[in-house]
Design a protein around this nucleic acid. Sequence first.
DNA 1: ATCTTAACACTACATTCGTCGCATTAAGGA
DNA 2: TCCTTAATGCGACGAATGTAGTGTTAAGAT
Lengths: 177, 177
Amino acid sequence: MRAEVLAAVVAELAEHGYDGLTMDGVAARSGVHRTTVYRRWKSVAGLLVDLLDSGATDDWAPADTGTLEGDLIALNREVYESLTIEPSITRAVIAASFRTPEAGAALREFWADRYRRSGVVVQRAIDRGEVPATTDAYAVCVAATAPIYHQLLLLRQPMTAAESDRYARAAARLGSS
Amino acid sequence: MRAEVLAAVVAELAEHGYDGLTMDGVAARSGVHRTTVYRRWKSVAGLLVDLLDSGATDDWAPADTGTLEGDLIALNREVYESLTIEPSITRAVIAASFRTPEAGAALREFWADRYRRSGVVVQRAIDRGEVPATTDAYAVCVAATAPIYHQLLLLRQPMTAAESDRYARAAARLGSS
DNA sequence: ATCTTAACACTACATTCGTCGCATTAAGGA
DNA sequence: TCCTTAATGCGACGAATGTAGTGTTAAGAT
């Protein structure tokens, strides 16, 4: 039941975009009745929150390439892709997060979880002696990924994958300085 | 007419927040008829786009404190305030920008205009000999302000005005390195 | 003063959205 | 098996949302 509905959310998102994502559309596509969708998920934001939760409990972990720079580049490419593929679930959830407190809270938890998991790339670099033991893992990961979000989501300027690599390298240097 | 409606948008935003912002509410408060609001502005996003446009044609300019660091700190404080006051028009427009292409385009123009105007703080620093003539004004302004947006809007972590000052100082050093 | 035109007011209507009461089904316990 | 309970399906309703058609008013031109 939950799986069908969440799959319908993704499909509707792909077809009509975030603004065209409607409770009725999800209900019709999933085969679940309107009232049931309203009862269990309350709103469009509720659907996206649940979609986020279903992803947060997965076994995601950053790639291990052997170097901090390589790890951060891989990380940035994932971020880059999550924002540029159509439909972007990430964009949709961010859009929802500006509308309801629940979605905002869910997104905050999601970021916290992601950056916590991402931190191991710095820990590995410390273990290898690449960077000082005092390096702030969180700060490095934020420094690597923040420019991508800022440029694509806020400024809405185009960006290439190569540029996202550059930000990763800059963050890696930041860690070892 | 336009002024009354836009004023009503701000007032409604203050009272009910972005997702409580409705065409009917704006029409009722402004005293303009429903159908007129629909005809001229189409949608809630259209109202916010126009609000943004009305702000883009104003005479905003960054403060002139005498030093690059001082100018950037002043700039960051404005950004900080625009995101933390309630209601935040900026937040509302950003929310809308994730929903319709028109709002997205309007926001892109707005940022471009703002950063273009902000660039003079770097130009003044160049004229004073504070930073090299090759300094990228846009990059410095983005470096100063981006962390505020990222932390408050995306990560949704709390932030103090003092921290926003720190980011301004870091960007100033970036310019003179 | 009259005409033209554009913007707005008004009413009415169709559609969509969210909720309610009740029937039905499924799962588990006595 | 029968009963209990929780979740879902169902139809209908009221409210909100968006649109169409028709006046009405105001400004400028002649």
